[in-house]
Amino acid sequence: MAGVSGGKPRYEGGSGFGDGASGEPALPEAFRAAVADLLGTRLRPEITLGETPAPRRLAPYAHALTATVEVDGEELADGRLVLLHDPSGHEAWRGEFRLVSLAQADLEREIADDPLLAEVGWSWLTDALEQFGCAYVEPGGTVSRAYSQYFGAMAERPSSTEIEIRASWTPVPRGDGSLDLGTHLRAWGELLCQCAGLPPSPLPLPAPGAPSPSTAAQTSSVVPMPTRRQPRGGV
């Protein structure tokens, strides 16, 4: 996996094609521009981005990114973001592009036992999309928690609890026709940092032509989880 700190990956072939074709000449210009927007975006310094083979059966064109959140050399959260593109449009998406994401992190047991964890986890995504002024439709997803108890050769490992947020949404073009996917990537990066228990980043300036974030977005009622320093998977 190619990755660099500061949230800017190197372009080394993370795109995939549903029909198995390859080679840049086959890429539609709209897809090229969308991928370039993602690759030109920098995130918070705690996030390291990389690229991974994209799924081939979800759409004619796809590009996949991976991300990890690290503090003091310890991995606190990770995830994957996939950009899908169907030039003919997709009825369920209500558009030609779709973002599909996975975010996961280990939790302390007392946090995982909170009955409102799922609602809070989903609000991290929607709050981040609103905070960064993202235009989107048709959001959907799941928030899961998993308890793991280890046995046999792994019995010495402490039990662990993990939150997993799977989500997808359709980015909507702005007035100038651009998708401004950089704002969506930054919002997703903020979701990862929330999962990791890091403090929220300062409110960003809205992108050109984007509506100003609402007062509710500026003062979110969602309290981030306490900062953690436990590596994923325990010792």
Rank of each mutant, 00 (worst) to 15 (best):
Y150Q: 01
Y150H: 09
Y150E: 00
G152T: 01
G152Y: 03
G152E: 07
A153I: 01
A153Q: 15
M154R: 13
A155C: 08
A155I: 07
E156S: 15
R157H: 08
R157C: 00
P158I: 00
P158S: 12
P158F: 03
S159K: 12
S160M: 08
T161K: 10
E162Y: 02
I163R: 12
E164M: 15
I165E: 10
S168L: 07
W169I: 00
W169Y: 11
T170R: 04
T170V: 08
T170F: 12
P171S: 10
P171Q: 11
P171Y: 09
V172K: 12
V172G: 00
V172N: 04
P173K: 12
P173W: 12
G175P: 00
G175K: 09
G175M: 02
G175W: 00
D176H: 09
D176A: 01
G177Y: 09
S178K: 15
S178C: 02
L179T: 01
L181E: 11
L181Q: 10
T183G: 05
T183E: 13
H184C: 06
H184N: 05
R186K: 15
A187V: 05
A187N: 09
A187P: 08
G189W: 06
E190W: 05
E190M: 11
E190N: 10
L191E: 12
L192T: 09
L192K: 03
L192H: 10
C193L: 02
Q194A: 13
Q194T: 00
Q194V: 00
C195V: 08
C195I: 07
A196N: 13
G197L: 02
G197W: 04
G197D: 07
G197H: 02
G197R: 02
G197S: 02
L198Y: 11
L198C: 06
P200G: 05
P200S: 05
P202I: 02
P202R: 03
P202Y: 08
P202A: 10
L205E: 14
L205Q: 14
L205K: 14
L205D: 15
L205G: 10
P208A: 06
P208K: 03
G209Y: 05
A210G: 06
A210Y: 11
P211G: 00
S212N: 11
S212G: 01
P213M: 04
S214Q: 10
S214T: 13
S214D: 12
T215G: 12
T215Y: 08
T215P: 03
A217Y: 11
A217G: 02
